[in-house]
Design a protein around this nucleic acid. Structure first.
Lengths: 263, 263
DNA sequence: TGATGCGCATTGACTGGACAATGACCCTCG
DNA sequence: CGAGGGTCATTGTCCAGTCAATGCGCATCA
């Protein structure tokens, strides 16, 4: 016999899945459920509801009730552009972006000098004594934070340059790096999927049960030296990460059984 | 004044972060914490601990206690291979894979014919009446499931071919598709970050507080028609998703201020 | 009319328990 | 010495409440 709180969660989860509880819809109150399942201990009902909250399916609103979560993901493209973009692609990627999305973007920029964390240090191949400059950006849409973007570079490289200006750099910071003799020609992307830290919950105003992707980009110059590490934190409920890949002809020769389309 | 259960969670979280509670280490028992925080209602202490559980930081083991979670991520590469792989890259990507990782891979394969879900249908541009074949794979490492990989293709395309054999196809299913006149030349990757469904929790034996990445790969033939959709579900605590990008020269001309290294 | 305040419904935090299930350990007995 | 059983520590499930905080609507009053 399954525990009561699980039955409550399972029943509600199914109702959400089959649409009888639509996005934005209101769930039964704790009192309703207490009666319906005869359990009559508020904590049991709350335990069941908390499961759904932690799955990111519902959100509680104090003094209002529990509601089915709604989300409208944005397309997040690590690749700057697509070489080919046939009409078919747009058919569904377009569905992801809300039609007539007129929310205005803005961002906070903050630059400081810090000791490198291990994450940054190992990727930039620095000694533990080296300092790095960090350019922290919080990106917003109509005032609401939607992702965090922190770029790190060796202080010795960017000191005194425009890279360190806490304002928007019109021609792009990568152009600044190029002028410093470090044109970026290659990037390695690592994507970690995890729950957010309380700090991230605060900065991104995340609801409970919202995981994040930590997207770490290490960029390299032509001589294969690492130049910059960018850590993007993107909330899972507000983004889809999109990549396009084209077949590399060399690949086929060397490895007939490629895992194209899979892992 | 912060609620007691949050103080408990914050204190423990900090101890985990600074290493005084190392991975695999045992946390104080509920009784210890009850005493320490003078709260003396088990539910309050449990509420605090459940926060950390849902953040994926700790796991409870019945009749044993709570323990700090340990994880050893595998590298998950949607791209079949890297054209250039300078030594620097390996320095840290290698750290991710446990040294001397001798776990043996295996997989279950199961093929069936189903109606296409909206996700699959829109990507394969099918009519609602069309049927699709699905090739479901559960991949294991030493018997333990580590990701799910379901490929969908129009039934009319793959019916009767080796694609539908529920066994390993030596030369690869993509080669089979090529022989059917649909060589895969391009792919679109979409990555969604979310909490797992109970079904996924069961199949992947996920601990609480473990988010997943849903990696949807749509592959196209030379004529830009969609051929196959593969949905990979990869647990966040066991994988790092890695991509490499090289600068496209065209890119620079058309769009001087590229977002190379960022979003 | 418009601002103020009161009550009500609902979730948030917490109390102080009970009994069940499980895994580890120790002791006993063959 | 090994198998089996019993005890104990610890988490899992559940009970039956209390008081606080909050958002909303409604009635009151200037």
């Amino acid at each position: 016999m399954k525990p009561i709180y699980q039955r409550i969660a399972d029943d509600l989860r199914e109702q959400i899945a089959d649409g009888s509880l639509p996005p934005g819809g209101k769930l039964p109150t704790e009192a309703d459920l207490r009666e319906k399942y005869g359990t009559s201990a508020r904590s049991t009902v709350r335990q069941g509801l908390s499961l759904l909250v932690n799955e990111g399916l519902i959100v509680p609103r104090r003094a209002k009730g529990y509601f089915v979560r709604e989300m409208r993901p944005l397309v997040y493209r690590p690749q700057s552009k697509f070489r080919r973009r046939p009409p078919e692609v747009d058919i569904y990627t377009h569905l992801l972006v809300s039609e007539g999305d007129e929310r205005r973007p803005s961002q906070d920029i903050e630059v400081s000098i810090v000791e490198a964390s291990t994450t940054v240090r190992s990727r930039l191949q620095l000694k533990s004594t080296d300092l790095v400059a960090v350019r922290r950006r919080t990106r917003r849409l109509d005032g609401e934070a939607y992702n965090l973007n922190d770029s790190y570079a060796a202080l010795s490289l960017v000191e005194g340059s425009e890279w360190m200006m806490p304002t928007d750099v019109a021609r792009g910071t990568n152009q600044v790096l190029a002028e410093l003799g470090k044109e970026l020609v290659r990037a390695l992307d690592e994507i970690y999927v995890r729950m957010p830290t309380p700090e991230e919950v605060r900065r991104l105003q995340l609801g409970p049960g919202t995981p994040v992707a930590e997207h770490v980009v290490t960029t390299f110059a032509a001589d294969d030296s690492p130049v910059q590490v960018t850590i993007n934190v993107v909330p899972g409920d507000r983004h889809v990460i999109v990549y396009e890949r084209v077949k590399d002809p060399d690949d086929f020769e060397q490895r007939p059984r490629s895992n194209w389309g899979a892992e």
